[in-house]
Design a protein around this nucleic acid. Structure first.
Lengths: 121, 121
DNA sequence: CATTCGTTTCGTCGTTTGACGAAATATAAT
DNA sequence: ATTATATTTCGTCAAACGACGAAACGAATG
């Protein structure tokens, strides 16, 4: 029950759901997501921490950045796997997800250092 | 997205999840759920209203009571059906659900009028 | 070894949530 | 019609939440 509620609480905020949808394009670091949503880095970090705590995403440090990605289907608990499937199946093709995906594609084409320079984080 | 968030917000409270688990035993009226959880009737009514608004449950008035039941699999939107499956599969066999189910069985054996008399609602 | 820089933690502020009791509503019983 | 009664709505309160900026952290750079 405890684990399950961590997942449902993580999913109860639309911006966290948007993050899960964005992560379908592959791993992303904090500043890329910050750029995508125009939120303060601390806000994004908090959202990622909540998603991580629910085991919906994993993190990995590489060079200067911390990359987050969706939990591996093979390794994740059943409840997590089904939650991710549910989110992606329900919202993967919405206009909102498409708009974010489009903006994200542009961000992914930009050098990370440039993005971070634009945010004085 | 709007509909989806209504569902995730509905699922983000443990007592509402408990209600969804309890409703697997069949339709229940407000005072039966009130008895099960020892909450004020107004609190239970609010929870049911939120679940109803998310289309996870339906209501039907009969005699003096309003009965709530799980949304019909055949009629419910896909997101609703999958949410209910997910909840029941993830938590249906937990100790917590079993304890509620046991208490609920006792309540279901009791006459409704007696239950309502015990709550001065 | 000091500095830089991406990220996280902390404290604050306004909003939302979940609980309650009191009052309103609507329906059944008398 | 009037009274009971099951449910809902409303107002209130404490706790949780989501946003932010400032400060702390920690790893790579100089």
């Amino acid at each position: 029950m405890r684990d399950f509620m961590a997942i449902t609480k993580a999913l109860s905020d639309p911006n966290r759901v948007r993050i899960l949808l964005a992560l379908r394009q592959g791993e992303l670091c904090v500043c890329q997501i910050t750029e995508l949503f125009n939120f303060a880095p601390s806000t994004v970090s908090k959202h990622l921490s909540i998603l991580h705590h629910a085991h919906l995403i994993t993190s990995q440090k590489s060079e200067r950045w911390v990359y987050y990605r969706l939990a591996e289907k093979k390794l994740a608990p059943v409840a997590v796997r089904e939650a991710l499937d549910w989110v992606h199946k329900s919202l993967g093709k919405t206009d909102e997800a498409a708009a974010d995906a489009k903006k994200l594609k542009r961000i992914l084409r930009t050098d990370l250092a440039v993005i971070c320079a634009g945010q004085k984080c």
